[in-house]
Amino acid sequence: MAMTIQLNGDPFGIAGPLTVSALLALLEIDERRVAVEHNLAVVKRPLFQSTIVYEGDAIEIVNFVGGG
């Protein structure tokens, strides 16, 4: 089923519901290098497989960049 989520602040169309792991795989993101927030709560890495993303959910995917 087509659904729209808020991904890093922007609307993003995707087939779902799906797990955080499936979303990262779809986006070709190495899940060991990122942290994920689901509706303002951090998702612990072991829970990527069991956390389901639904229509309208807000997802933030972050990684480390250069900084001081």
Binding site: L7, R33, I61, N63, V65, G66
Partner: peptide, 19 residues
């Protein structure tokens, strides 16, 4: 070493990772 936390670029995944 200090690092910053920023959104992953969803539309351009080609960039290398700092790590």
């Amino acid at each position: 070493v200090t690092v910053a936390v920023r959104r992953v670029n969803i539309s351009d995944r080609s960039k290398e990772s700092l790590l």
